[in-house]
Design a protein around this nucleic acid. Structure first.
Lengths: 211, 211
DNA sequence: GTCTATACGATGATAGAC
DNA sequence: GTCTATCATCGTATAGAC
């Protein structure tokens, strides 16, 4: 019996398990069991566990970054036509909104969001270099746009603030389920759209803060 | 031959390896080799790999939180005497400065900072519950103080902003060595004291931002 | 080409003899 | 406290069925 979707099934199962338990704590056996395929199928289709992780990342990161870059370029073009400078908030929005929206579109991309959050937390992790490679053009463009929007800010200060903001984002990406130590009278359930605005309030204020 | 410092040597070696490679990617063999003790010594002194991790965390987190809580209480008392409200920036400082300072005091606590950053990145990780248990009183007090400082802010908004700020902090804790995608003309080397101020500029502006 | 069954060497954590 | 044995499980390799 031929099942042409074997690769995709492995990718989805791997995505889910990697996101939930982390790369090292996930065994190939648990993935192949969940995907209902033979253990050796991973090696046949991907070559190794590490290569599987790379494939998991690339499957979703490539289209995501295409969307983010498109939105950013559109914003910059529109601002240029109106001879304005795009706001810091709008620039950040092109980066974070498509990311957080992956959670809600009913697809199985929710796991991916958490997975990226985890990868960003493993400095010397196996996936870091492949991830960075995919992010570089977008990051350069983002930094460039923010520098345009905040011309008075020293570049070193700008760098650190971008670092802080993206660190904050990676934290949210990881923790959309776990909410420890929530005060009793606080309701943490928010719509994705509201979370985006809450975050943009915080991050753009932080970016624009006086020195 | 009896070596009374066996436990401490294991703790330090474990701290170093857990911080560098992560909990799951670290083998007991690599720890005991580095500590120059027998493999089984871990089980004898701590019971299990997981219990060792807990001991590693507790050894430094207990005194750290004592310092943070003391600084916060002192700040609140001083403000009360002057019949003032402590600033958001000063409150945050009591939390983050003692943490980041662990890197520079020449001790071996640098690894611990990175380790905590990593633990915070593993939602369902083995160490999360023990970590949270240690943080709860301090977090409650922190939230309470910030609510005092920003009375006009809805509590839900305050919660999320604290969440964002601490996410940002955990990111810095992890990444003090890796700095990917740094623009060419930016120098990322900063003193700990400068980093604290850079972060407080960002975080307090973000906390105080208008709604 | 796809997929399966099975085996291998390495390493994991732990228990029990000493 | 230490050492050794043990056993489960890991990622990977391979031979062969469809």
């Amino acid at each position: 019996m031929s099942r042409p979707d074997t690769k995709q099934r492995i990718l989805s199962a791997a995505e889910h398990h990697f996101a939930r338990d982390g790369y090292h704590a996930t065994s190939l056996r648990s993935i192949t069991t969940a995907a209902d395929v033979n253990l050796a199928a991973v090696n046949y289709h991907f070559g190794s566990k590490e290569a599987l992780l790379e494939a998991v990342i690339e499957r979703r990161l490539t289209p995501l970054n295409k969307v983010r870059l498109n939105q950013l370029e559109t914003l910059l073009k529109k601002a240029k036509q109106g001879e304005e400078v795009p706001t810091c908030r709008d620039i950040l929005r092109t980066f974070i909104e498509p990311t957080l929206r992956l959670r809600q579109q009913g697809s199985d991309s929710e796991d991916f969001v958490a997975l990226i959050g985890r990868i960003l937390a493993e400095p010397r992790g196996v996936a870091m270099s492949i991830f960075m490679h995919h992010m570089e053009p977008l990051m350069n463009r983002l930094f460039q746009a923010l520098a345009l929007s905040l011309p008075e800010l020293p570049r070193q200060t700008l760098f650190w603030r971008v670092h802080f903001a993206l660190g904050s984002l990676s934290h949210i990406m990881r923790c959309h389920e776990r909410h420890a130590m929530v005060p009793e009278d606080v309701n943490v359930d928010v719509e994705v759209g509201d979370l985006v605005e809450l975050f943009l309030d915080f991050a753009s204020a932080g970016m624009e803060g006086t020195i």
